[in-house]
């Protein structure tokens, strides 16, 4: 297998960021392999295991599908109208591939703008990508550096 370069991982993450900023959620969901997960641990337990600790988000593939479906509904009030978001993804690092999995790390800064407020969410990604004919998410984990989700206390958008 040809090794995956950092540039390829960056292209994947930047493409993902664009899909999310454009609220193209079906296209975004298609970046996940079946059985993949999306996790956001709490700010006080950034290293926790979702089977043992409360998380902000701990979606299996089906629940993630339900989240996407919900966010596309005009009845997802917290995001109707949608927030404007702009994601800055940087400091991308590629770990050692094992079997068909590739760990990747990146820093993110997401601005969320709505109702006269500009909220910023800063943190790091600790993803596991599935290697194949194209990259996909196997585990997508967003870890906040914030101490508290303050002041915009909702992860109604995708972090």
């Amino acid at each position: 297998m040809t090794p995956v370069t950092r540039a390829q991982v960056e292209d994947f993450l930047f493409h993902e960021a664009a899909l999310l900023d454009e609220w193209r959620l079906d296209d975004w969901y298609a970046l996940f392999e079946e059985g993949a997960t999306y996790e956001v641990p709490t700010t006080d337990r950034p290293d926790a295991d979702p089977e043992k600790a409360q998380f902000y988000v701990s979606d299996d593939y089906e629940l993630l599908g339900a989240r996407v479906k919900r966010l596309k509904s005009k009845h997802a009030h917290a995001e109707n109208p949608h927030s404007r978001t702009r994601r800055l993804i940087t400091n991308v690092r590629v770990g050692q591939p094992a079997d068909s999995s590739l760990p990747v790390y990146a820093a993110f800064l997401i601005y969320k703008i709505r109702d006269g407020n500009v909220d910023s969410f800063v943190g790091r990604y600790e993803h596991t990508l599935a290697l194949g004919d194209r990259l996909r998410f196997r585990k997508r984990r967003a870890v906040l550096e914030l101490e508290v989700l303050r002041p915009g206390g909702r992860l109604s958008f995708i972090l």
């Binding site: 979702p50 089977e51 043992k52 998380f55 902000y56 299996d60 629940l63 009030h77 109604s156």
Partner: peptide
């Protein structure tokens, strides 16, 4: 342990800032 994991998953789908319901309460 299995029930604990299920409990966390089920409640988390509903409540909290990243759940499928609480953000609409916050709104």
């Amino acid at each position: 342990a299995e029930e604990r994991a299920l409990r966390i998953k089920i409640l988390g789908s509903f409540i909290g800032p990243g759940g499928l319901a609480t953000p609409d309460d916050v709104e």
